[in-house]
């Protein structure tokens, strides 16, 4: 039983990483109705920007908001420069664009900051949290920040005019235009916010997985899986999905014999797909009824 509880706790602490990423994934899905395959690389790039600012001697608590602002602007710039001109091109072309963005960011980061693994500081420290060896203060801080973000997002989408306008623009672009919402800029704003949340995720994850251009490879897959599992329409679902996937993965590794690190991912994905086959909209998502 103790083993079980320990593994669940360890799962929750890795799940926090996935939850962060999943939140960013859902954010952009809300804004543009696609999964952004370059999301992880954007977060990685933002983290490198934070790293660079720290290298220049800017204190941590200045770096954090600065990185957020730069990432926000960067997200909007990417949308304006790359994806707005693509406009009405088919969905699959947009996906190809994401892959291109992925390749570019990865390669440029590798060349600028080189491919070696770097340490990234944490503001929370790495002492055991409440005497538990499994969750460090950093991971606890991460879980806390994830939930704060979630609440902020909820408030933003629920109670502000801009949030409402963004939801309208994503759900029914034509009708939103008719009531005077600038749909095009709402999408740009969505990109900016997703990029900003990605930056937060990157800065929180980097102390755990270490900073390098490929740091997001594995995390993004789990982030997608978590977002899809929780339901792409629900930020709350995404966060819950993240924790579930983290716990899932750990329990599978512990209790099913012969499952090494290699098979963890396929089995986690297989379980997620099983869930999806039973509940196609995800655990917390809404299913849309299609009409002719």
């Amino acid at each position: 039983m103790e083993l079980f509880i320990n593994q669940v706790l360890a799962g929750i602490s890795t799940g926090a990483i996935y939850a962060c990423m999943a939140l960013a994934v859902v954010m952009i899905y809300q804004a543009i109705d696609h999964l952004n395959f370059a999301q992880g690389e954007m977060a990685m790039f933002s983290t490198f920007i934070a790293y660079q600012l720290l290298q220049w001697g800017i204190p941590y608590w200045w770096t954090f908001p600065l990185t957020l602002i730069i990432s926000f602007a960067g997200g909007i710039a990417i949308e304006r420069a790359l994806f707005k001109p693509l406009g009405n091109a088919p969905v699959l072309v947009h996906v190809a664009g994401f892959i291109a963005l992925f390749a570019i960011l990865n390669s440029v980061a590798g060349l600028t900051w080189d491919w070696t693994i770097k340490q990234f500081p944490t503001p929370f420290g790495n002492a055991p949290f409440l005497g538990s060896q499994l969750i460090s203060t950093h991971q606890a801080g991460m879980i806390g920040i994830t939930f704060i973000l979630l609440i902020l997002l909820f408030v933003f989408f629920r109670f502000t005019r801009v949030g409402l306008a963004m939801r309208a623009a994503a759900a029914l672009p034509e009708s939103a235009k008719l009531v005077g919402i600038n749909v095009s800029w709402m999408i740009a704003l969505g990109w900016g916010m997703a990029s900003g949340i990605g930056a937060i995720a990157g800065i929180l994850i980097a102390p755990v997985v270490f900073l390098e251009p490929n740091m997001m490879g594995g995390v993004l897959v789990y982030g997608f899986a978590s977002a899809v599992l929780g339901g792409l329409t629900s930020p709350f679902g995404a966060v819950m999905g993240g924790f579930l996937v983290g716990v899932f993965e750990n329990l599978v590794g512990t209790y099913i014999p012969g499952v090494g690190n290699e098979l963890k991912l396929p089995i986690a994905l297989a379980l997620i797909i099983t869930v999806l086959v039973l509940r196609p909209g995800g655990l917390f998502g809404r299913t849309f009824v299609q009409r002719v």
Binding site: L82, A96, G97, I99, A100, L101, F102, A103, I104, N106, S107, V108, G110, L111
Partner: peptide, 9 residues
């Protein structure tokens, strides 16, 4: 990687 991405774009 970047050149590949740019050609693709």
């Amino acid at each position: 990687g970047a050149i590949f991405g740019i050609i693709l774009i």
